[in-house]
């Protein structure tokens, strides 16, 4: 027996199904019943029920790429805030090798870095690293925080959403899996991108989002949209059939799983000036 429909909004304690279903993420089993533990959207796959949270905190996981801000400099490491219950540290040896240098000359408090989670140990110490393509320090730009579970939605299918924002605003946009987004471009364009990203976060659980984002971008940039305009916040066009809605919903789960499994995140483009800047900093 199942008591809910796919992509229905549930709240903690709601009974979702009987024992013949498996409990996935965001659910738990009690007295042979699968119950929701979160506020979120139900996702049913075969016999597995999960709840996709609408709000969450980032829990660091090995292999993730994150954006962090330097909060402290210690004797041989930097402490970083990675928008998570657990702060991270970047060992000096990871940057300098065996050489000894002054840490604050390389990265100072307040600097924003693009890093990879190297390890999370039993006491929840998060070891970060800078080794890898595109990792390093950001110069300028603005930071926007979104809920980490909405990162896949912001990126879109094969990066469609993020690429649309990049193309339309001519900004560089980099998304960390911890929900921090870095945007750099013309100051007015940065503001446009910020508005759009906040709108995506607000409406990530609704369908027809891509079209609304396209229209919003067009409106903010003063370009005539190709298609008819819909009021923001209203549900998307009804005549585009239910199938599209469904596929967009599936998208959330699919991308969450892809981003969890694979290490290659095509969405993350290396900042161009990054490689040299890192050299500068070290020399």
């Amino acid at each position: 027996m199942i008591f809910v429909e796919d992509k229905e909004i549930v709240i903690p304690g709601d009974i979702l199904a009987d024992e013949e279903y498996h409990s996935g993420r965001g659910t738990f089993k009690e007295n042979d019943k699968v119950c929701s533990s979160l506020v979120g959207l139900v996702a049913i796959r075969d016999k597995k029920i999960s709840v996709i949270p609408l709000q969450s905190k980032y829990i660091p996981k090995r292999g993730d790429v994150v954006i962090g801000e330097v909060t402290d400099i210690r004797f041989s490491m930097w402490n970083l805030d990675i928008n998570s219950p657990y702060s991270g540290f970047l060992p000096a040896s990871d940057v300098f090798g065996k050489e000894k240098r002054e840490l604050n000359r390389t990265f100072d408090v307040g600097d924003v870095l693009f890093l990879r989670v190297v390890d999370v140990d039993e006491v929840k110490k998060v070891k970060l690293g800078l080794k890898g393509r595109g990792l390093g320090k950001f110069r300028g730009g603005i930071l926007i925080n979104i809920t980490p579970t909405k990162v896949p939605r912001l990126i879109g299918k094969k990066g469609s959403m993020i690429n649309m924002i990049k193309d339309q605003t001519h900004c560089e946009v980099i998304v960390g899996q911890n929900g921090v987004v870095w945007v750099k471009g013309e100051p007015s364009m940065e503001r446009v991108a910020e508005k759009v990203i906040n709108m995506i976060e607000d409406q990530a659980h609704t369908s027809g989002l891509t079209d609304r984002v396209r229209n919003m971008l067009a409106k903010l940039l003063g370009i005539e949209p190709e298609e008819t305009e819909y009021e923001l916040g209203e549900p998307g066009p009804v005549d585009e059939s239910d199938e599209l809605e469904m596929s967009e919903e599936v998208e959330i789960t699919e991308i969450i799983e892809i981003s969890e499994e694979s290490d290659e995140l095509e969405e993350f483009e290396p900042p161009e000036e990054k490689e040299e800047s890192k050299e500068d900093e070290i020399d």
Binding site: I11, G13, E30, L38, V39, S56
Partner: peptide
């Protein structure tokens, strides 16, 4: 708490 996305057994 529910609004903050904190997992709970029940309200």
């Amino acid at each position: 708490l529910a609004d903050a996305g904190i997992p709970m057994r029940d309200m």
